[in-house]
Structure formats: C-alpha cells, structure tokens
Amino acid sequence: MRHDLWAPTLLRALVALVFAAVTVFWQQPSLEAGRWVMALFLVGTGLSAIFLQVRINRNETVDLGASRSIPQSYGVLYVLGGALTAVVATSNWLFVLLSAMILGLCGLTELVLGMRFRGQFPLGRDWTLCGVITVFAAMGMVLVETLGAKAELGVVGGAAILIGVTQLIAALSLRHDARVADSAASPPARGA
C-alpha cells in the first residue's frame, strides 16, 4: 500500500513548498499576480489529491469504505476553486472570499477524513494535521484581508511551509517503509 501513497504525497509537498518559497520571497505582489499564484497552488494541490485517488483506486488492499472517493472530491474542489480564483477574483475581497472558502471546505473535509482514519491508514495523521493547518490558513486570510495581497499570500504561504514539510516527511517515510517491505519480501540471494 505504501508504494502507492508516497508519490502523490511527495507531489503535494513539492507544490506546497514551491508556493511557500514564492510567497515568502515575493515582496510586493499585485492582486493580479497573487491570484494566479494562488490559483496555481490550489490547482496543484487538487491534482495531487486526484493523483492520490488514482493510486488508492488501483490498490485493492486499501479499504476506506464509503470515504474511498473523498480525496478525489476535495481534489476536484481545489482544481475548480483554483480556476474560479484565476478567472473570477477581480477584486481583493472576492479573491479572499473564494480562496478562503475553497481552503476552508477542503481543509475541513481533509480534517474529517484524517480524524476518521487517524490510526488505521498511513496518511490519517497527516490528513488531520494538514486539514487543521488549511482551515487556519483560510481563517487567517480573512483576518488579514485589509492588509493586501502580501499578507494574504503570506498567511497561506506560512501554512504551505508547514504542509510541505509535513508531506515531505510523510512521503520519505512511506518510501522508506515501502523499500523495507520490498527487501523483507524478496528472498535472500544465494552466494556462489
């Protein structure tokens, strides 16, 4: 199972860390450029969730029950939210409203999924932590709305750092566990 989980987790980590690096070092983002960066972050996060869903679907040993398609659901919501943010968010308040709603809904969904599978699924704890961080990022965006694009992107960028590091550690751990399982499953080579 861990073979199928590490690559989508790594993709999400990379998307979050690239977004975080851009927002931390970008001193004076305009609303126009900021909404495109946020849109790309939302779409990238959504695509990593859809990639995770594809990997979960191809593995018959993963049993999430009725929750099996939830990563795809919030992945699609992220992608649609990113597209809406890029196209519709022409004013600062609309940018904050759309971004915060998408982050809040997806974060709550991921939090609930994580709480449900916290001890049963390898990504359960990571989903819980990322869900909490995403919900706080959504709330933070609303709180700093009057301070402009730098503050809004900075709040989400700070959350992205935490998510990126968490997901990177999870991906490396899953990859390591998969390699250990492979070496334990393969028969030892015979010496001549």
Rank of each mutant, 00 (worst) to 15 (best):
E110H: 01
V142M: 12
V132Q: 04
T128S: 15
L47A: 14
T23K: 05
V15C: 03
L77P: 01
P8S: 07
W93N: 12
G104S: 04
V156N: 03
V96G: 06
V79I: 13
T134K: 09
H3L: 01
I102V: 15
T61W: 13
A33C: 04
D182W: 00
E32V: 08
G34C: 12
V180N: 02
I50C: 11
F41Y: 14
L84G: 14
V76W: 06
M115R: 13
R35W: 03
V37A: 14
L14D: 03
A66Y: 13
G82Q: 08
A171N: 00
N57Q: 10
L172G: 05
A7P: 05
V87M: 13
A138D: 10
G82T: 06
P122V: 03
Q27S: 14
A13E: 05
L47H: 11
A49Q: 10
G114E: 08
A89P: 06
I169Y: 14
L108H: 01
L98A: 05
G44Y: 01
L31T: 04
A39D: 07
L42P: 00
R55M: 14
R175C: 02
Q53F: 11
T90G: 11
L147S: 13
L14Q: 00
S30I: 06
T23Y: 09
V24E: 11
L129R: 13
W93T: 14
